[in-house]
Amino acid sequence: MELNGVPLHPLVVHAAVVFVPLAALGALVLALVPRWRWAVRTPTLVLAVVAALSAQLAAFSGEDFMHRLSAHTELVDTHQMWGDRLVIAMWVLAALTAAGWWLLPFTSPLPGRPERASRVPVLVLPMVLGLPVVAIAVLGLVVLTGDAGARSAWGGQ
């Protein structure tokens, strides 16, 4: 896959490098800062979906890039392994963010906007505990994937 003769993978990776950490940080705020939940819930959901799509596109374009260059080395394999794990974790984060958008209670400071209680109160605590765990895992995976990618591109130097 190319865009004007430039391999798509190095271009798409930059989207994932920006959107994945932003989505993870947004998910942390959504879960852990109830005061801001009303303001961050929709932007975080949009970011999570865009981040998952950009990570998926980076994985697809990376596979194509690897085959075109015949660059099947241990460093590339490590990068691909972490990237595959990141894609899965990012889709899990997107799904949990969607569930949190629908499930978590919030209070809007805007006049005339009432408080919204949780739709399933028994799931609030698991969501508030689980969403940060997945978000932190995603942050770790994006670092590991990026580090392995940089090492494969620059020869470990």
Rank of each mutant, 00 (worst) to 15 (best):
A135H: 10
A48R: 10
L110Q: 04
A117K: 03
L8T: 06
E115C: 08
V29Y: 14
G146D: 15
L125R: 15
L110S: 04
E2I: 05
R151E: 09
L93W: 03
P21C: 08
G112V: 00
P105K: 05
L3G: 04
G130N: 08
V142S: 14
N4Q: 13
A137F: 09
I88Y: 13
V87Q: 01
G5F: 01
Q56H: 12
R119Y: 01
M81Q: 14
V133S: 07
M66L: 14
L57G: 01
A55W: 04
V142H: 03
G26V: 13
V92P: 05
L57R: 02
V128P: 06
R35L: 08
P132A: 04
H9F: 05
P126V: 07
L47V: 06
P114R: 13
Q80G: 02
L45N: 06
A24N: 11
Q56N: 12
A94I: 15
A15I: 03
T42M: 10
A58I: 09
P43Y: 13
L139T: 01
A148I: 12
A135R: 09
T97G: 10
R85C: 03
T107Q: 02
A137H: 07
M127R: 08
W36Y: 12
P111W: 00
A31W: 12
Q157W: 15
G155D: 00
H67A: 12
P109L: 00
S61L: 14
V40G: 02
P109F: 01
G5M: 04
T107M: 00
Q80D: 05
R41D: 04
I136H: 11
L69C: 05
T42P: 01
W101L: 11
A24Q: 11
P126G: 02
T44Y: 14
R119E: 00
P132V: 00
G140C: 14
D64R: 13
S118I: 07
G155C: 11
A135S: 14
A24F: 12
H9S: 07
V40F: 02
L141A: 03
Q56L: 13
R113E: 03
A99D: 00
L93I: 05
A24G: 06
A95D: 07
A95L: 14
L32A: 13
L11H: 04
V76M: 15
G62Q: 06
L131P: 07
R116F: 00
R151W: 09
R68W: 01
V122M: 13
M66N: 13
V40M: 08
Q80W: 08
L141W: 08
A39H: 02
R151G: 00
A117Y: 01
V87P: 00
L125I: 11
G155H: 01
S61A: 15
L57E: 07
A71M: 15
A58L: 11
A55K: 11
A137K: 11
W91M: 01
A148P: 12
V133W: 12
A117N: 04
L30Y: 07
E63W: 08
L32C: 09
P10A: 10
E74H: 15
H14S: 02
A137L: 15
H67V: 08
L86E: 02
D84R: 09
V50A: 13
G83K: 10
L53A: 15
G140H: 13
G5D: 05
P126T: 03
A59W: 15
N4A: 11
H72V: 11
W38K: 00
G62H: 04
T97E: 07
G149H: 11
W36N: 00
A52W: 09
M90E: 04
R116T: 08
D64K: 14
T145C: 05
P34R: 07
A150E: 12
L104E: 01
